[in-house]
Structure formats: C-alpha cells, structure tokens
Computed example of a mutant assay.
Amino acid sequence: MPRAEQAGRPARTGARGGPPFARRAGWVVAAAFVLVACSAGGVPAASPTSVATASPAATTPAGPAPSPPTLPLAGRTVVLDPGHNGGNGTARAAVTRQVPDGRGGTKACNTTGTSTDAGYTEHAFAWDLAGRVRARLTAAGARVVLTRPSDDGVGPCVDERGRAGQAAGADLMVSLHADGAAAGGSGFHVAYSNPPLNPAQSGPALTLAGDLRDALVAGGFRVSDYIGRDGLSPRADLGGLNFATVPAALVECANMRNAREAALVSGADGRERYATAIAAGIQHFLTP
C-alpha cells in the first residue's frame, strides 16, 4: 500500500514486556495449529459366541466415549480486512470521495493499492492471503469475518473497515496489505494506531502488533529496513485503525517493488508462509 509519511517512531517494546523478539524464542510456528485428533477408543465388540458363554464377572463394561478435542480458538471472533478491492481502479469517484479519518480530518475512502512490477496486485495478494489465514483460524475453532466478500467489488471505505471489528463483536481485527516503497527497501512492518484514541488502542493493539511481529520473525521474515523500528510502526493517519475499538493492527507483509519480495508474495508457497505466521500471531494473542 503506498505509504503516507511515517508518523513517529515507537518505543522499543516487545509485546507483553521483555526484549523484542526474545519472548517467542521457543515458538514452532508450524505447530501452532496442529490439532491432535482423539482416536475412537472403547472395547471391541464381542462375537455372538463369546457373549453367550462369558460369565458376568468377566464382562468389562464400556466406559464413556472420549471427549472431542477442544479447539483453541473456540468462541473467538476475528475480523480480517484484506486491503483495497479489485474494482477500485475503475471506480475513481467512489474511492476518492472524502470520509472521516478518525482524528477529526478526512481522507480518501480507499485506494487502488500497489502492485509488483510484473503486475501482481496488492488487492489480489491481500484477498488470497485472507483466505489462507481464515482457513487456519477456522480450523482452530474461530469465527472469521471478512470486511469484503470478494475481490471484484469497490471499497468498503476505511472508516467502515475500521468499525468492522466492533460491528462483528470481534476479539480483534487484522488488516492485510503489502507495501509499495522504493525498490531498495525490504521487510515487513506492523502498524498500530498511535497516539491511542481509546483503551483498546492504548495497550492491547500494541500487544497484538507485537505478537504478529514476533510470529513473522519466527516464520523467517525480516523486519522492515525502511520504516518503523523493530518491525513496528505507529501511525496516526490510518482510518482503518483509528476507528477500531477492538485491538487492531495492520500488516504490511512485504515491499512489492522489491524484486526478491515481489517473487515471495507472488508465489503460493510464499503466501502460505505469511498465512501460517499471521495466524500463529493471532492465536498467540488470543491464547497467551
């Protein structure tokens, strides 16, 4: 997503305290979503002959059926906000109209987003990534709500996206993007609303951002070398975060104008890696 000028530098803070990155040193991200299935236990059925001849004392009563495994995110609701939309490019009037920015000003409803030099668009990347993250969270028991139903529509505007978490009764919201910076820049960063406008933004949102950052680092991704600090970027200009009253963060997964990272986001294997890490960060926030 083309960037506005960075607003401030965050303190060097790891989520929930401790040095950045060190808290998750023991993570195995791929294991975060392994659900261990219980085998169907019980006593094998006896043959008709053995039932007729067995004495009452030799009969072993069957115990209660084993309980199904508890899903770690059962009862949780997550809103995923895949950035931009496929129809924005042909709906200039709709996406450029001014809407509230959450801090007393206005900004454009939305934008078209960026793309790789080969033409792979940010909106397509964000939509594909959202589906992959949703699959992992759903498998862990979460209810997942998306801010848009397809990749061929227009909008929604940033203020509507920002309110989506509370509208869904969600535990958190994560917005999914990729950046469009100078080709020499690389790495991911996680943005959060700052200065905070409500209690969810004053602490929980930063914790969520830190959990996402730590999971991406554990997944082998490098933090940004051109914006933010330690992979975190405080922002005052993002309406999609300013309006949130649930913990919310925005992940800029990569710089799509960097050749190496363009190849990463353009491939299914790369998107699988991002999805695994982001889903792990969300699960860690919800099940500390």
Rank of each mutant, 00 (worst) to 15 (best):
E5H: 08
R9L: 15
G14I: 01
R16G: 10
G17C: 07
G18M: 07
P20L: 03
G26I: 12
G26Q: 10
A30W: 09
S39T: 13
A40R: 14
A40K: 14
A40I: 15
V43I: 13
P44E: 11
P44M: 09
A46G: 07
S47Y: 10
P48C: 05
T49N: 08
S50D: 15
A52H: 03
A57N: 02
A58I: 10
T59C: 12
T60Q: 15
A65K: 14
A65H: 06
P72Y: 04
T77V: 12
T77K: 11
V79W: 01
P82T: 03
G83Q: 00
G83I: 00
N85C: 03
N85M: 08
G86N: 07
N88L: 10
N88G: 01
G89T: 05
T90A: 15
A93W: 08
R97K: 14
R97A: 07
Q98N: 08
V99C: 02
V99S: 02
P100F: 04
P100Q: 03
D101F: 01
G102R: 01
G104I: 08
G104A: 08
T106N: 08
A108S: 09
T111G: 12
T112C: 05
G119L: 07
A126S: 10
W127C: 00
R134D: 09
L137I: 08
A139I: 11
A140E: 06
A140P: 02
G141K: 03
R143T: 14
R143L: 11
